[in-house]
Nucleic acid binder design. Structure first.
Lengths: 127, 127, 127, 127
DNA sequence: GTGGTCTAGACCACG
DNA sequence: GTGGTCTAGACCACA
């Protein structure tokens, strides 16, 4: 996996370390990262995005504590053998639920009907 | 407008004062709050949700600085006469866009197809 | 920039946080603070003037919302890259206009002629 | 004196009652209002400027407490016989001093030289 | 180290 | 009654 594939935007309010950790979690849950797959080194990511290595390290440490990643001496971080296999669809959908609730709520406040919002989302998902 | 109509969840990472301010902004954009409409007093909201009056005041001050609300001295806050009228649909939809992008991105990471996500969102929006 | 350079007078009716914010705005407009320049930390200013850190923070937050300052996470506040460059003379003079109007109005009420007021002001400005 | 001659701007941060009281004080100090001169009634001022009568009353009460005005039964408020005669020039100039200090300070922050500020003020005072 | 958020409580200013 | 300001102090999040 290439370090530059991470989408990182320091300008967002979302803390950088969580932008990284969340992406790794989802890629593992979705099966795009499989047990044993290697991750870019802390240095690579930090250099590719001009961020503080400590910030990357914090994300990795958190994922290691969760059992998502393993630290292989001399090899860096890899997806843990014990990491949950790609999760069933229902479970992955459930992970998206809080965000979908937020969308529904804001659409309601903005008086936006589903007929406007759903096509727009479909369009974005097809890209 | 009833103070208890605000949805406030202190558990969220989103600060309370911004939860309030964002809701007011959207209600004004959607036209559910019109120019001249009075808002619940700081104390009412604070009491209804068991939060500190200053937290509510912070939201109101911010909205006043933005020109969304006006302070009627001794009377309270009302939607500003100069506040943008209910915005056209395209503009309201644009306000939802960043969140929809986030949904699309996460769905992609989780390998969730539109055929799973869209019906779920439709369901949430019909409630 | 030294924290003690701010002029703060808690005795004035003008709230402290606005005394701070106004001074920063003017120093940026006048070019004495340039894009990228670091500002004293909240704690420094608070300690130097024996005021509450939150009061300083309020000024900084407001300036950040206006786009005058930027928050470098973990590092502090700096003058925003997007902040308006030192403004042309005419514009800076325009900022002083409301206050000059006030002077003219009060001088008129007090029946003070320009020949008395102007020399006094010249004297104060030469200090 | 005509009620509409008062300059009142509810939009200013300066409280309305003080806008009124300060103007009266200055007009007395400058000699434009002399002992015995009648002031517009509370109702007149309130109606002319669409403000709360209580606000006008508060200004008058304060001026009465200071000895600037007197309440003549059936006649309304008049400038007190004991009110200080028009004050000597030096004293009136001293009253303007704090404001002139503020001008000097802001001009300094804005890097505005006296050669720019003074002509502008002269212009405003000649109107 | 940096700033952000929230609370509890006091006091003020305004109408 | 309304909102505004400030304090003291705690705790959090980030780099």
């Amino acid at each position: 996996m290439d370090a530059s594939l991470f989408r990182i935007q320091p300008s967002l309010p979302e803390p950088i370390y969580r932008q990284i950790a969340d992406q790794v979690r989802r890629l593992v849950a979705g099966g795009q990262l499989q047990a044993g797959d290697a991750l870019p080194s802390v240095r690579e990511i930090a250099a590719a995005h001009a961020i503080n290595p400590m910030t990357v390290s914090k994300a990795y440490s958190q994922l290691e504590a969760e059992g998502v990643l393993e630290r292989l001496r001399g090899k860096g971080m890899v997806v843990a053998a014990t990491a949950r296999r790609p999760q069933p669809l229902a479970e992955r959908l459930a992970q998206l639920d809080p965000l979908l609730h937020e969308v529904a709520q804001r659409a309601h406040d903005l008086e936006l009907p589903g007929d406007e919002v759903l096509p727009r989302l479909r369009q974005l998902m097809e890209k």
